[in-house]
Amino acid sequence: MEVPLTWYLVLSGILFSIGAVGVLINRNALVIFMCIELMLNAVNLAFVTFSRQQNSMDGQIFVFFIMTVAAAEAVVGLAIIIALFRNKATINVDDINIMKW
């Protein structure tokens, strides 16, 4: 039995929402970052599904670029978190609050 393409899109939507909600409710910078990665992967799933649906390769090419960018973002993000941890010894985003309006 073939799985209909809509199911993939629904799954991608669910994953994206889990990621977005996770970013909003988590307080740990690392977990927030993981949730962002989840969102990007949900986007990848959507791209691959659409690519299959449209019979064009553009979407799959796009996925490669997203993965590359996500890797670059991971490098920079973890470095930033480490730099902060060296100075403050916390990665709880509630404690990172010297600047407020």
């Binding site: 994206f16 930033i80 600047m99």
Partner: peptide, 18 residues
Amino acid sequence: RSNEASLKYFLLGAFVTG
């Protein structure tokens, strides 16, 4: 301050990229 700016910019920027 600089660390904090960078972390805030990064987390929100990556979030919006999604």
